[in-house]
Design a binder for these strands. Structure first.
Lengths: 253, 253
DNA sequence: CGGATAGGTATTGCATGCAATTTTTCATTA
DNA sequence: TAATGAAAAATTGCATGCAATACCTATCCG
């Protein structure tokens, strides 16, 4: 996408292009991705493409067949719910570690800054939605940095590699809902409370709050499943197993 | 090393061989692993070797250089502690999910069987240590199966890929300590309590117990760090970043 | 008419050659 | 002596050809 793609490695270019196509719904779940088909499509040779397929398999977007080759993975709503729950558990751990470990109060500043910035954006009427998303990501990055645990960072990176498990996956979709204002008020209060708990070394409280904070995304998922238009704004929604939606629809009368 | 290696892919063979060498201390942390050096050593070509290096990087045993190539990763004691803590968090989540989700009591049977088997082995005087380790792994596998969450399974697989983070990493080393009997009694009681909590749908209790159970490994780590002979029994100990004592020792030499 | 089997096609996995880049080494100079 | 620079050596990343394997199809037999 960016001009720099040409400079970076062929493999990275393949990863970026293929990931984008996957999330945009360029493939149907379960479909086999053939190297010889993809290579000319992405403008790379088979060797770096193979590497890229391995990366995407590790991310969870592809699945390797025992007989060789890869297929596009599909996700059930239960998968997404568990992925969100898992992120909550890991971010909860990050919050607890942050609360337990920080020494110098200045370390809390980045997190404080993100909260303040989001407050300002909320007061301004939430016109700059992209800015809010960016600050939200800043908050989560600051949280992870405070935990000061490379191992946890790695685990969280893997857990949020699935697009719908990312902290800002459904925030974008929220912008299209009338209810979004209320949800964002709640989310922002949780941000404040998490920061408060961390600043007071209240590890258990910080953990519980961060977990519940992630569950906001779960609520948004449920809302999105009832609203086709909203689901379109969620990246990777195309990988949802089709039948599952209808079953959930019929069941949730 | 098994006879099947010849039948499986070159890449898998490279992964197994290289992983074994890494854990056995065949490389020094920070050392660069050159493809052209390794390829003839492992008896594979560069192409599958490259794939294998990627796998081991995902596992965390290697680190990719920005300029290309891989180096052997080193771990601090803090890394190991966090890896164990992380496993505790994830197994705690598995225990909680297991407690919350099971419907048919027969699903608990594998876990019950593992606990019973370990009880029997303990009553028999703990002569069959390998058997105990196997049953311990059975217990953890049953726990993960009960959680019924592919996402969590994936995360736990990644977290326990690091050798010293595995549930049975220090159990082996325990066999060489006089204190081991007491520790194993505690561990076995925790197994029983976790099963009890799960069987009663006591999610929070099951989670807390599983976390603390993992922390037994942390205690064993501390013991191992004070006992060089014991540390030798821990796979991957060779990847520990030399401690400050050792640096001081080397200086004086 | 259904199932099995053989043949053909397509696809993967692997080896190797080549170019580009990095790293190292060594000589030179301030 | 330390820093600088260039040249050489080594290493990676990539493309492509080939063999082995899996998949699909069509035919044959029960």
């Amino acid at each position: 996408m960016s001009a720099e793609d040409g400079r970076s490695s062929q493999m990275l270019r393949a990863v970026l292009q293929l990931r984008e196509r996957l999330l945009a719904g360029g493939f149907t779940p379960g479909e086999r991705v053939a190297e010889l088909t993809l290579a000319p499509l992405l403008g790379v040779s088979r060797t770096p493409l193979r590497l890229a397929l391995g990366v995407l398999e590790h991310e969870g977007l592809l699945r390797m067949l025992p007989s060789g080759g890869f297929v596009v993975r599909d996700f059930t709503t239960a998968d997404i719910e568990d992925a969100i729950e898992l992120r909550g558990v890991l971010e909860g751990t990050a919050a607890r570690m942050a609360a337990e470990r920080w020494k110098d109060a200045r370390a809390l500043q980045p997190m404080q800054a993100a909260v303040t910035a989001m407050d300002a954006l909320a007061d301004a009427g939430m016109t700059d939605f992209a800015g809010y998303v960016a600050q939200n990501e800043q908050f989560h990055a600051a949280l992870l940095a405070l935990a000061a645990s490379p191992m946890l960072k790695r685990a969280l990176a893997q857990a949020t590699a699935l697009p719908f498990a990312s902290p800002s996956a459904f925030v974008r979709a929220q912008g299209e809902q009338a209810e979004s204002q209320r949800v964002l008020v709640i989310a922002q209060d949780q941000h404040r409370c998490i920061l408060d708990a961390i600043s007071k070394h209240e590890g258990a409280r910080a953990e519980a709050l961060a977990r519940e904070h992630a569950r906001l995304a779960r609520r948004n998922l449920d809302a999105a499943l009832r609203n086709r238009a909203m689901l379109g704004a969620v990246p990777g929604a195309a990988l949802l197993r089709p039948m599952q939606e209808d079953i959930a629809h019929a069941r949730s009368a």
